[in-house]
Design a protein around this nucleic acid. Structure first.
Lengths: 200, 200
DNA sequence: TTAATTATCTAACACATTGTAAATTAAGTC
DNA sequence: GACTTAATTTACAATGTGTTAGATAATTAA
């Protein structure tokens, strides 16, 4: 089999980049309901017909952008050092947080927008898969097992807490450094979270 | 001032109910992008023009439905007994979970749909306000304060974990009873969640 | 029960958006 | 420089949007 990739035509790269940039641009300015293929093409200075040569429709474009986002995030996670130190867990997350901070404009628009759930959905899936793998590899905390906590509930809880915190962090214009936030995660996991008289 | 409410015309009640039911119906069948005012009116056996007598457009309709949803949820929370027993916290949540279970069809469609973030957004806001009020009333756990956990991060983390777990519970067709899930919440808050070698 | 009120329906309109097609021009590859 | 492929232009039918004006039906008040 020939795996020499054909090196895509620069025109394709250029067009897709222009379209994606235009989309992010528009998302900053208006609700997604108001964004049409017309507007995207106009903003990208690309003919509308050309849009359809690359994407079936806007949701299809968003799907593909979400694919790329997840790939980037996964790459950031994979670049992390192996877990060996006792602070390994926060270090892994740190790389992800730093990757997000480095591309803050993109992530703030895409994850912070109130009407683009595709992206948060995909990120949630990635993180919960990741949490799941680790739980299956290492098992749960003994005290959790003893207490009768269901594995799937722990996965739902943990991954939702992660992504929700990251999204809130972005929406609030990242008031903490990635390092500081990563430490907060470690502590939130390490300490019981509420007194018995609290909670919703 | 005269506060005798004018008792809304039954035709208005009927029409709005038909429109909302039709919308939920369609959301079960197709992605929101494919739902038009045309289709909603047709399914509701209501003239399309009549739709515009009640709502400005589809997002406006969703906003109003989200308002009503939050009102219902808040009512369920308010009906809860005051916190006096040492299991008070899980009992409060229990009423919310039971309310959701009682209206499972509606909530599964509305919160489970991958493209209707308005509703999860609003629920997140309500829950995080609720978590915030309690934290401000009772303060955080001493061990959390000592560890230097930020109040806002704790709020983000806790409310995102709550809503994410509830949404996952719905999407998985509620494999646990409300009571059981409420207990899981209590335990997840009471025990450290990961060993030091775990986490994303 | 009748009269007044108000919600819904009908038909029509201008306009935007969608998705596709065929022929032409421009850019990139070999 | 010849070949290949991407992007453009122009055009089209179909669908959706939001609004208007007048007719009809249901509700309420006298």
């Amino acid at each position: 089999m020939d795996h020499t990739k054909p090196r895509t035509d620069p025109r394709i790269v250029r067009t897709r980049q222009l379209l994606k940039d235009a989309f992010i641009d528009l998302l900053e300015e208006m609700e997604i309901e108001k964004i049409s293929v017309n507007r995207i093409a106009e903003r990208a200075t690309i003919n509308r017909v050309t849009f359809y040569l690359h994407y079936r429709d806007i949701p299809d474009m968003m799907d593909k952008m979400a694919d790329e986002m997840v790939e980037d995030m996964q790459r950031a996670l994979d670049e992390s050092p192996p877990i060996d130190s006792d602070r390994g867990d926060s270090l892994i997350l740190l790389n992800l947080l730093e990757h997000i901070a480095d591309n803050a404009k993109f992530y703030k628009v895409i994850l912070g927008s109130r009407r683009t759930p595709v992206f948060t959905e995909r990120m949630l899936k990635m993180l919960s898969d990741s949490v799941k793998r680790r739980i299956e590899q290492f098992g749960m905390n003994d005290s959790m097992v003893d207490a009768g906590i269901q594995k799937d509930v722990a996965i739902w809880y943990g991954s939702a807490a992660l992504i929700g915190t990251i999204v809130a962090w972005l929406r609030n214009d990242m008031p903490y450094t990635p390092t500081y936030l990563a430490k907060q995660f470690t502590m939130l996991r390490a300490y019981p979270q509420w007194r018995s008289t609290e909670g919703v």
